[in-house]
Design a binder for these strands. Structure first.
Lengths: 341, 341
DNA sequence: GTGAAAGCGCTAACAG
DNA sequence: CTGTTAGCGCTTTCAC
């Protein structure tokens, strides 16, 4: 049925000749309505094309059944995978998700957080663009449950679901070392992020454990992006004494790295071994195929929602839970080469 | 300030010793409030940690400043790009977006549409999973503006922003023909979707224009996914008389196709030319590099929001606008080979 | 079983 | 300039 203004519960009540209370009972599947009455109401609803207003409902019930998801880079395939995990669980529990993208901008992130608070979301899962920011104050003040995913949040006590980045990087670099490499470079991400810092730490730890002195020329840095990886690799390629192996801190950077390799005359394989953090689509199309550190992305998302949901449900406050998931080293071909043999 | 229940406009009014109307004026940046008063109110807001409830506001104003975005596959990199375009424009106009993923399920899509209607979104941009479905009835009934992106919607008159799929496929296949190929296969997407159908139509048209008879063995079909492309390519590879060129209808399918090529002994290059619809990350990592049909994804999104916004703003109804954007053929290496020379 | 009525927090006349 | 007041559409006691 078409009509100018959307029908309300009032209209339905009038049409079915009952009170709005009864209509409310029906649309909320509450018992205690005679079957005939219910049928009459259901009929009126259909005829009028009535849709219950979630806005009014939220107003009354003080819950929106919406959770916000904030990610820093929708173009990074890692996040869609994680988001799927969250969504899947959320749907099961009757929650809907609002996904927003900050493009790594703390300013945008702050705006989005405020927006979500205004909109009254029941909780937020966030991979922040600024781990030290003050933008979370409002969430704490308003008592909105938050789960930090993949990147921790300082100065605020939220639940966290992180990856053991140190271990992941450590395993990768260790592998490189055990294959005989000693000239191992790292393409670092931003060191003001947990993943950036920790992956670097894992690299350092591996070197230390195997008594390999740090060559500062082999530590290059960039943003978590293709461009970042490209520039870093290029600078590495211009070194007089090039490394024999490279560890890349991020999937996008790995792609940039591969492109740089193509553009310079530096060849993967004999000349250069490689392991990257996070699996990527191109990994099996390069020659040799890329070895990578892989993360359980779906699980990450599922777990994050579970923690969030527990907090939304519970009235009591309890101290933050911190989960650390273990990544897995997937060996393909790019680290088979032992240079010095 | 922490407090148990969130402060309301009432609390602020009391705290600043004014009426709620005045507070409302201030938080809405309306003129006509003495500066001292305003300061007092601003102060109270800060002290109380007050946040305006968008729920209550929406209830009163009958607008939510939210638009819904519905996409069928968040893992397909095409969509994040499009979504970025939408978001960018939306943010400029003060709208926020709710992104939902149907995973190509019409059932989920229907649920999401209902959810968005209940939530009172001001408009919807959708790439539907079911072009013939009835799920749009409710949108029409409620008078909610809709823009169909990338896939048209039958039986309902919504604005559309589409790609000229026929032309894109036509150009690609024509190119293959002009290089000397006559045994050209197509990996089709689902023929109950516009893109699937139209790309097939473009293929047929090119064959017809150049008097190449259709070989039905060269027409294989699958879902718009890696698996779909993989299976299709495999079946092609088992033909006694294999094609000398393949046109793939979708980015994910192209990836599957490449994987299948690796797994069979069928080699891109001398043996086989290739062009795929949509550019992909791996395109420059295969040997030879892949030629592709590329689409202006960002523009697609931007345009979609613009159309939507015009409708949201306007009170009058006007007949649907249909945009058709032109894709571009990017020639790399995978179609240089002319078999019969 | 069903209805009447009181708000949820806000905006927007309308008064003063 | 500022305050009073009437809803927006719904859920939820509390009566009957």
């Amino acid at each position: 049925m078409k009509s100018d203004s959307k029908p309300t519960i009032q209209d339905v009540a009038k049409h079915a000749d009952v009170s709005i209370a009864t209509v409310s009972r029906v649309i909320n599947n509450q018992s205690g309505v005679r079957e005939v009455t219910e049928k009459r109401i259901l009929n009126a609803i259909k005829e009028l094309g009535y849709v219950r207003s979630a806005v009014a409902r939220s107003m009354k019930k003080k819950e929106t059944k919406m959770i916000g998801i904030i990610i820093p880079d929708i173009s990074n395939p890692f996040f869609p995978k994680v988001v799927s995990g969250i969504e899947q669980q959320a749907r099961k529990k009757g929650y809907y998700t609002m996904l927003s993208n900050t493009s790594e901008s703390p300013i945008v992130e702050k705006e989005i957080i405020n927006m979500l608070v205004e909109r009254g979301v029941d909780g937020i899962v966030i991979t922040t663009a600024d781990e030290n920011g003050e933008q979370f104050q409002i969430l704490q003040d308003q008592g909105i449950p938050v789960v930090a995913l993949d990147r921790s949040i300082n100065q605020f006590e939220f639940d966290t679901v992180l990856i053991d980045n140190i271990d992941g990087a450590y395993q990768a670099v260790k592998r490189l070392i055990l294959q005989g490499h000693r000239e191992i470079a790292i393409i670092c991400g931003p060191l003001n992020t947990t993943p950036g810092r920790d992956r670097y730490a894992g690299y350092m730890k591996a070197l230390a454990d195997y008594d390999i002195p740090l060559n500062e020329e082999f530590v290059v840095q960039g943003s978590f992006s293709e461009e970042g990886g490209y520039a870093a690799t290029l600078s590495l390629s211009q070194l007089d004494a090039k490394p024999t192996a490279v560890f890349s801190s991020n999937n996008l950077m790995s792609i940039g790295c591969m492109k740089a390799l193509q553009d310079s005359e530096w060849e993967l394989g004999e000349e250069l071994a490689f392991i990257g953090f996070d699996d990527i689509e191109i990994a099996t199309f390069t020659k040799p195929k890329l070895s990578v550190v892989s993360r359980p992305m779906n699980t990450l998302g599922e777990l994050a929602f579970q923690l969030l949901h527990e907090r939304i449900q519970s009235n009591e406050t309890f101290s933050p839970r911190n989960y650390l998931l273990t990544p897995e080293l997937i060996i393909r071909e790019s680290c088979r080469v032992a240079k010095d043999d």
